[in-house]
Write a protein that binds this DNA or RNA. Structure first.
Lengths: 193, 193
DNA sequence: GACATATTAGAATATACATTCTAATAAAAG
DNA sequence: CTTTTATTAGAATGTATATTCTAATATGTC
């Protein structure tokens, strides 16, 4: 019952994602999102409680897109493959990469998240922490602060840094970043201090 | 002639810097800046053409604060000392570090810069590029794309990545980051590929 | 002491958006 | 073919700020 929908939730999220990746999160006005797909602004609010909720959906989608593959690689035990996931993923998903790597989460979602979404976001970060701990334990025999720090640095922070400069310029990361990431990984993750 | 000033330019820049470091650039409203030092909003505009100009002054000051020491260290020839400058500077200058490392330049200054300030900003980035090129040439015998990439990665990008996580949490980077930076520097900057 | 003016004071205005509201539509159900 | 209601449509409203404007105040100069 009721008339057929011209638009669906995904379209609005797609539009918001596209605008955020192209012109930054500040350009994601409700009017811009609606305009992107020829919808009236009312339809945005028919589907999303607020701009924050829409942007939170964008963030959750992007974060999951990165992390699902990352974690499954890490679980297979190859740390270096996980480290190299960042440049590979960034090449395949330029728009998503810009959003995840260029902007802070609070820049996308300024206010508070609805409880249910906060839970989803927390789940994502907990899953990441757990995956890293497990890998560190497997690699070093234990997962104390020192081991976690090294692991995070080698497979998250350094790949991020290696790629950021290119993402900023709207370019795909060149092959050379794999070299830098690999050398760093080897230097940091040796067994002995 | 004219009455004495209660406030001076520096005070407004200080106030803006403090607010930006503490609550992010979005919290730097003209009213907040004025309120911080008990000045009327009119006095802000008496001294600065616009919010963007005020924020540009903040950025220029912070960028110069980081870069002056960084470049003088680099000129002395010790690349590893330059790489370690980031965590050291961040510990000594928490507020400035938050501004430089946590926020993009366009987040501070959204619109366009006045010509004169654009020139100053360009000077800063050119001086950095030149310093890096010179160091790369001195270290590797030449400064082609490959050499520059490695150098930038080892002395800028990696130190930034090593420190970022702590800056985000409002903590000072622990000693361990020096370890990570040093190991990475050594791995990346060897002569042979 | 009267004048000129740099500066303080802060009220008034303008703008950009998020959000809300009211109405029009179209499809399904009976 | 009438009723119900999900959805489109987009105009109206409210809010937060940047910016502008008008006035009041001091201080050096004549």
């Amino acid at each position: 019952m009721g008339r057929n929908a011209h638009f669906d939730n995904e379209q609005f999220i797609d539009a918001a994602l596209k605008i955020a990746a192209g012109q930054g999160p500040a350009a994601v006005t409700i009017a811009a999102v609606a305009g992107e797909i020829g919808a009236p602004v009312g339809s945005v609010y028919h589907r999303f409680l607020s701009r924050d909720v829409l942007m939170a959906e964008v963030w959750l989608r992007v974060a999951a897109s990165f992390q699902d593959e990352f974690l499954s690689t890490l679980e297979k035990g190859e740390g270096i493959e996980a480290a190299l996931h960042t440049p590979r993923w960034a090449r395949q998903h330029s728009a998503e990469a810009r959003i995840l790597l260029l902007y802070r989460r609070e820049e996308l979602v300024a206010g508070s998240w609805p409880e249910e979404m906060k839970e989803r976001a927390l789940g994502i970060s907990r899953r990441l922490d757990a995956g890293i701990s497990k890998f560190a334990a497997r690699t070093f025999g234990k997962a104390g602060r020192e081991e976690i720090n090294r692991t995070v640095f080698a497979i998250i922070d350094v790949p991020y840094a290696a790629v950021l400069r290119y993402i900023r310029q709207g370019k795909k990361p060149p092959r050379a970043v794999e070299d830098n990431i690999t050398k760093t990984y080897n230097a940091i993750m040796r067994r002995m201090k």
